[in-house]
Every structure is written in structure tokens, then in C-alpha cells.
């Protein structure tokens, strides 16, 4: 009997998507911060005015519990596809926890990395959609417009992070009353043949903005809490406005630990990570298990 898994490969291969630092290295970096120069690009820089939503995920805090995945599923009407479909590789997790084994196979270290949509400023998915179902909005979100999607799936092929999920069959559960009752009315229920992905909880952003507007104030840091952020027990996920002075996410991104996934591709993701810091003894004791 085969085990249905969502991840089939656990070694990091040619890249290091999950970066770790020893304490000594981290201290050295903090003293002499080395900022990587910006990558050359033929595209003009995306202007950042108004709100610029971003997310920073602290890999040092993530324990791999998966609460973010479950919260996201509940908030966004994400369907449960069942064992057979998971075996085929069609799970619908908008945020997934990647698990890597590092070190010798007899006794490897386990490292966890939550991967939502990167909301790339130079999103490779946007260029290839023939019907403009995936576009960029002025606040930096990469949007997926379900009602426009015809399902060519080129966007998924072009996403290097593979964060896009496709409704290969009618997963939505039809008219079952218990499922209808569970659904969030603020989020569209997707039909088969439509691509979906993490939206930075756009419904919460819109609700917060309208609320702030109609009561005559500006959006404050902490007004918008994404589902994954709210569920994380270790507060590993920080979300907010990068343009807001001294917002939690702006502070996180300015840390020397901050890095972007697959930076060399030039996608300029808004979702960034903070390297995991460990403090092992010289004989390797005290390393993550």
C-alpha cells in the first residue's frame, strides 16, 4: 500500500532554499552586513507607492506544525481533494510546509520551510497568461482572477516555486450543505478548470481598507492579519506594509538574515525568509534534530 505524500523529494540538491547560519556567522554578518547588489534587469523597477504588501517568514521560529496550511484552507475555501488525488500530486495547499533532510541519512536534521505565493514583483506567471487572469495590482499583490481563468496552466509551468494549484476536477464539493456552511462567503468558490493560489488574504486586506476608509483613518500595522499569520503558534509569519515606516515586516526585511528564494531568477519576491540560526558545539551537538 503506497503512502500518499505531498512532497516526494527531501534533499536540497543544487540550491539551498532553506538557509541556515551558525551563531558565529550570524554575529559576523550583523557586524559587517553585506547586501547583495541588485540583479541586472531589462524591466523597469516596479514603483512602490501607497501600500506595498510583503511577508517575512522566520525559519528560526517555524516548527513545521502545519497550522498555517490548515488555517489557509479554512479561510479560503480550499477543497480537500482526497487520498487518490494527493497521490497524483494534486493537493490544493496554497501554503505548504516543505521539509528537508540535511546531513547523513542515518541521522538527518529536519528543517521546515513554509512556502506561500511569493507575489513576485517580476512575476513570471503574469507574462504567460493568455487571458490576463493573473495580473499585478498597484499594492504589489499578484492576483488570480478566477472568473477569467480558462485553465491553460502555463502560469503554473512558469512558476519556479510551484505555488499555484489547479482544480483538475470538480473539487468544490457541490451542494453538500455541511460544506456550504463551512465556506467563507468573502472568498470565491472555484470551479473546475481554474487556477488558484495564495492571495495574501486579499479579502482581509480589502475589508481592512474599507473599514479604515469609512471610519476616516489610515491603515495601521497589524490591521491586516493573514490566516496563516494568525494561526502560527510561534509567530514565524509576519505580514504587513513594507512602505509603512517601522512596520514589523519592514523591520524583518531589513535584518541581515533576510533572503529571497531563488533570487538569481530575478523574480523579486515580496515573500522573504529569515535564515535559521543555530548554535552547535564543535562536535556537532546541539544541532537541530
Amino acid at each position: 500500500m503506497t503512502l500518499a505524500t505531498t512532497q516526494n523529494h527531501h534533499r536540497m540538491e543544487v540550491d539551498t532554499p532553506l538557509r541556515t547560519l551558525t551563531l558565529a556567522d550570524y554575529r559576523r554578518q550583523r557586524e559587517a552586513p553585506r547586501r547583495e547588489p541588485p540583479l541586472p534587469s531589462l524591466y523597469p523597477a516596479v514603483p512602490r507607492q501607497g501600500q506595498a504588501w510583503g511577508m517575512s517568514i522566520d525559519l528560526g521560529a517555524c516548527i513545521g506544525c502545519g497550522a498555517c496550511t490548515v488555517a489557509c484552507q479554512a479561510e479560503n475555501n480550499i477543497p480537500v481533494v482526497g487520498r487518490e488525488e494527493v497521490k497524483r500530486g494534486r493537493e490544493m495547499h496554497w501554503i505548504r510546509i516543505d521539509r528537508y533532510f540535511v546531513g547523513p541519512s542515518e541521522n538527518p536534521r529536519f528543517l521546515f520551510q513554509p512556502v506561500p505565493c511569493m507575489h513576485c514583483e517580476n512575476a513570471p506567471c503574469e507574462v504567460v497568461c493568455p487571458v490576463a487572469a493573473t495580473v499585478h495590482d498597484s499594492e504589489g499583490l499578484n492576483l488570480q482572477v478566477y472568473n477569467r481563468c480558462v485553465g491553460t496552466r502555463f502560469c503554473s509551468n512558469n512558476c519556479p516555486y510551484k505555488v499555484r494549484r489547479f482544480n483538475f476536477l470538480e473539487y468544490a464539493g457541490g451542494k453538500d450543505e455541511s460544506i456550504q456552511a463551512q465556506r467563507n462567503p468573502q472568498v470565491t468558490v472555484r470551479q473546475r478548470g481554474v487556477m488558484e493560489k495564495c492571495t495574501y488574504c486579499l479579502q482581509r486586506i480589502n475589508a481592512a481598507r474599507i473599514q479604515a476608509r469609512t471610519t476616516g483613518r489610515e491603515l495601521r500595522d497589524g490591521d491586516v492579519i493573514t490566516a496563516c499569520q494568525g494561526a502560527c503558534p510561534t509567530r514565524a509569519i509576519v505580514f504587513g506594509d513594507l512602505n509603512l515606516v517601522d512596520s514589523a515586516v519592514a523591520r524583518a526585511v531589513s535584518s541581515p538574515r533576510s533572503y529571497a528564494l531563488l533570487r538569481e531568477l530575478g523574480t523579486r519576491p515580496r515573500t522573504t525568509y529569515l535564515s535559521r540560526v543555530s548554535n552547535p558545539r564543535d562536535d556537532g551537538a546541539g544541532e537541530d534534530r
Binding site: 495590482d137 470565491t188 479579502q203
Partner: peptide, 12 residues
């Protein structure tokens, strides 16, 4: 007005 025609204004 530059952001009023963003898809995210009406579609989620």
C-alpha cells in the same frame, strides 16, 4: 485613480 481599475478591487 491609478489603482481603481485593479482586478483586486472587485474580484477575489
Amino acid at each position: 485613480t491609478s489603482r481603481l481599475a485593479d482586478c483586486s478591487v472587485c474580484h477575489r
